[in-house]
């Protein structure tokens, strides 16, 4: 498990706790508001305000968790034809590949292709709610 994965796993464990806390605080705030309305007691109004502030803080943190963006990387090699200059990105990068290595035949002119570059392309994805709550275990594969 990479460092990013482990950090995300640690954060992810807190999502259900934050979610339950948020719901609890909202219920409590509604309760205090209703009590303040029906009893005209100033203390209940103060309690409801404090509870709403706490709910806001928890909600803000939860929204940060829910907006987590995961990067997925794909390594590709850029093949260029020595003769006609045709180029394409190939996802089949072998351990033996290196830049400036001759690799295959050009599909257009039949000339020799050369590896012009090897690099990774980043793709940013947002995990679904099910994945964040641990009900769907696809997150780990996204890092690969």
């Amino acid at each position: 498990m990479s460092l990013d994965e482990k950090l995300f796993e640690i954060k992810r464990k807190w999502i259900p706790v934050y979610f339950i806390l948020l719901i609890g605080l909202i219920i409590l705030a509604i309760h205090f508001i209703l009590m303040a309305y029906f009893t005209n007691n100033q203390d209940y109004a103060s309690f409801s305000l404090l509870t709403l502030v706490a709910a806001g803080y928890i909600g803000y943190n939860l929204s940060k968790f829910l907006n987590t963006i995961i990067s997925k990387y794909t390594t590709v090699k850029l093949l260029t034809c020595k003769k006609c200059g045709y180029s394409n990105e190939d996802k089949n990068v072998d351990k033996e590949d290196y830049v400036m290595k001759e690799d295959g035949i050009c599909p257009k002119c039949g000339g020799k292709m050369i590896i012009e570059g090897i690099y990774r392309i980043e793709e940013k994805t947002k995990p679904s709610l099910l994945e964040l709550f641990g009900l769907k275990k696809k997150i780990r594969n996204r890092f690969k």
Partner: peptide
């Protein structure tokens, strides 16, 4: 120290 990114490749 990571595998070269496309941005850096284009920078070359």
């Amino acid at each position: 120290l990571s595998i070269l990114t496309k941005d850096l490749y284009e920078a070359t």
